[in-house]
């Protein structure tokens, strides 16, 4: 590991000033991804600015009836919070489906959004990777890609975003708030992760040197009946090979409102807008759910070894929406 300077920030503006525009400096939150990447040499910062003690660890109601989640709230505290569990249960479930209890107690909301892909070529510094070394190539396209993207990828990168939490946040129209050198700013989560294109090393819309301060969730009555379901290669403590955050409001057998987002299928949490448009106003039955999934998955471009994800996501959509509709009918 490269030697590095370490400084502890005492306020947000000070943290942003400390970091400046230095590309060799990183903010340190829980460290569960950054420290791991520093050990493997993927990240080689010359300086860390520790932001864990900043006063960004609260979950508070917003005036419009939503919630404001501080950037240094741990995943553990987020999933345990009564208002998250009551109003956005799929978000609590998504967080609980990720990592282990130990890691959830360390990892923060801001860091969760900014965590890097677990693509084996990205994390192995002896291999080419366009995300890590722009222009060096993408061995995953011809190589090991059974857990890579089926949506929104490019010929330059097929890696997936590993977060569970972000999938639920995408379904519920979360907004990412940050503090940059020129002051505060915000970005809807839908626009926060950049298209892959030929710049897979540019991952987010966060301005250089900016610090995520909090995430807001607008009020979403439909989210009260929501679910996160994750499929992985063992029963617990593994990254998803496919996941779904879903919310459904059914009245008189007709879908009134619906939210769907897919995980582990793209470089970002994949909000399934085409599927939602099929659902809303349609009869709440398995045929509708399958048609909704198909509308979204029409854009899927699977690789030779990850075609199973298309059927997996389709089955998840039908199963989870059927369960939510059945619960609504009780």
């Amino acid at each position: 590991m490269r030697e590095f300077d370490y400084q502890r920030a005492s306020d947000v503006a000070g943290a942003v000033a400390l970091l400046g525009a230095d590309p060799d400096t990183r903010f340190l939150g829980g460290g569960t991804n950054l420290v791991d990447l520093m050990k493997s040499g993927v990240e080689r910062p010359a300086r860390l600015v520790d932001i864990r003690e900043l006063p960004l660890d609260e979950i508070e109601p917003t005036p419009d009836g939503g919630l404001r989640i501080g950037a240094t709230v741990t995943n553990g505290d987020l999933a345990a919070h009564p208002e998250i569990r009551r109003r956005y249960p799929a978000l609590a479930q998504a967080v609980l489906a990720g990592a282990s209890g130990q890691l959830r107690n360390m990892a923060t909301v801001g860091g969760n959004l900014l965590q890097r892909t677990r693509c084996g070529y990205f994390t192995d510094v002896t291999k080419p990777c366009n995300k890590r070394v722009p222009g060096s190539g993408c061995p995953a396209i011809e190589g090991e890609h059974h857990n890579h993207a089926i949506l929104g990828a490019s010929g330059h990168c097929v890696a997936v975003h590993p977060s569970d939490m972000a999938v639920a946040l995408a379904a519920f129209d979360a907004v990412v708030h940050f503090h940059a050198a020129d002051g505060p700013g915000q970005s809807p989560l839908a626009d926060f992760y950049l298209p892959v294109g030929d710049t897979p090393h540019r991952e987010t819309a966060l301005p250089p040197g900016a610090l995520i301060t909090h995430v807001t969730l607008p009020p979403a009555p439909v989210a009260a009946r929501s679910r996160y379901r994750k499929v992985r290669e063992r029963a617990s403590y593994a990254f998803a090979i496919g996941s779904l955050a879903a919310a459904l409001d059914v009245r008189d057998g007709v879908v009134q409102d619906a939210r769907l987002a897919f995980g582990a299928v793209a470089s970002r949490p994949w909000r399934a807008g085409a599927a939602e448009r099929v659902l809303i106003g349609a009869p709440a039955d398995a045929g509708t759910y399958a048609a909704a999934a198909d509308a979204e998955l029409a854009a899927a471009r699977p690789l030779p070894h990850n075609g199973y994800k298309v059927e997996l996501i389709r089955n998840l959509v039908v199963a989870v929406l059927s369960e939510l509709a059945e619960e609504a009918a009780r």
């Binding site: 460290g31 860390l48 360390m106």
Partner: peptide
């Protein structure tokens, strides 16, 4: 609980 290996 936390893992000490990822804690500086």
């Amino acid at each position: 609980r936390a893992v000490a290996c990822l804690q500086l």
